[in-house]
Computed example of a mutant assay.
Amino acid sequence: MPQRAATIVGGGIGGLAAAIALHRRGWRVEVLERAPEFTEIGAGISLWPNALRALDALGLADTVRALGAVEAAGGVRDRKGRWLTRTDNAELTRRFGHPLLVLHRADLLRALAEALPADSLRPDSEVSQVRDDDHGPVVEHPGGASRPDLVIGADGLRSAVRGALWPRAADPRYAGYTAWRMVTEPLADPPAEGAATWGRGERFGYTALPGGRMYCFATASLPAGTISDSSEHDELLRRFGSWPDPIPRLLAVVPPDAVLRHDLYDLPPLPSFVRGRVALLGDAAHAMTPNLGQGACQALEDAVTLAHCLDSAPDDLAAALHSYDLLRRPRTQAITRRSARLGDMGQLAWPPAVLLRDTAARLMPAWATLRSMTPVLGWTAPGEQSTTTENETP
């Protein structure tokens, strides 16, 4: 059988993971990335047990775990610093087989890129056209035109692949709030637990990275495109500088030029993740808000599932892609909705609603919180036995 070829558009986490999964199955892969290099200027990233199982299927779980820090415990606090919910991550590991791992996005991307042949990575390759005709898919880029067996659109929220082949798809929708992300300088005494603090229309969270650094994130309900009057660091100090410890202490050790700000969007449901011999994955298929920490986790699941489906029907690409769509679309769209609902709850600003939210969170036992996450975290790679101790089906 001739070697099959795949062109992956987008060199982020999902695109590289898909390339790895196919390369290890004997496919010839090329990854087209419009940026001049395969890197990530972002901040931290949380990898939940389902993502680590996907990395396990790629043979990279141990490599990635060595780059991150396992969060020992965490939870949600109110505006006065009182705990609303707390989670012991040892229990998370017991239930789902893996811990919650936090690392820098750049470290994860580097580990994925290093798992591929250097000649399969093609930076500075912005795609100018994608089409799928009777002779197969075509991708045009500065290096020429590729005509592979399969095209994978992993090019993010504003996907060029989705725009070309899903022209009637709805535009990404603004979630109603903006977000800041940052990494602190190393602290001599970093907080022992991560936490998200909920205020009124604002949130601030933090979790540990290796080396005493902390990954911090914040949100505020604002019209899309709002620009700060001062620097983003000054804006954070204005909004959160008087919040409960350790938030002011963390902001004091954030380099002023290290603050990233992005308005948050998600993607309305697509009728299919597949068109002809083109498949979408990651944010190109199901961009979601970060409230569940599942964006990259779901992209990794996509990559592993797509490769498995292609394995299961090696002589029938259409059947394989149909199986991928059936497996991934309902799950990821449900998680997108769930993440949006959690974000809406976290951004509540009306005082009576905030009081009701905080009271309900305080009354919910920790075991119920973990149990409610089983459909998300209990995912198992296709063909592998589940290690989840709960009875719910992912």
Rank of each mutant, 00 (worst) to 15 (best):
L121R: 05
V130W: 09
A113M: 04
P123M: 12
G144W: 10
P117I: 02
S128V: 08
H135P: 00
G143R: 01
V138C: 13
V139P: 11
D133Y: 00
S120W: 11
E126W: 00
A113E: 02
D132H: 06
D132W: 01
R131I: 13
L150G: 12
D149I: 06
A111V: 13
S120R: 07
V130M: 13
A113K: 07
A113G: 15
E140T: 15
D133I: 00
I152D: 09
V138W: 01
V151Y: 05
S146E: 15
P137I: 00
P117Q: 04
G136F: 03
P123K: 07
D149E: 03
P123Q: 11
L116N: 08
A145Y: 06
A111K: 07
R131W: 12
Q129F: 10
H135Y: 09
G143K: 06
V139N: 06
V138L: 13
D134E: 15
P142K: 04
G136N: 04
P142H: 06
L121C: 12
I152H: 07
V139G: 06
D132C: 00
R147D: 06
H141C: 10
D119E: 15
D133N: 08
A115K: 08
D133R: 04
V130L: 12
V130A: 14
E126V: 08
D119N: 13
H141A: 11
P117S: 04
R131S: 15
P117K: 01
Q129D: 15
L112Y: 13
V127W: 01
G143M: 10
V138A: 14
E114Y: 05
D133Q: 06
R131K: 14
G153F: 02
L116G: 06
E140Y: 00
R131N: 14
A145V: 11
G144N: 11
D119L: 07
R122F: 10
I152V: 15
P137T: 01
S120I: 04
R122K: 15
L112C: 09
S125G: 05
V130D: 02
V139R: 00
L150W: 05
S120L: 05
L112H: 14
D119W: 08
V127H: 04
S120E: 11
D134F: 09
P148Y: 02
R110W: 12
S120D: 13
H141F: 15
P123V: 13
A113D: 05
G144E: 11
G144K: 00
A113L: 02
D124P: 03
V130C: 13
R131F: 12
V151Q: 05
P148L: 11
I152M: 07
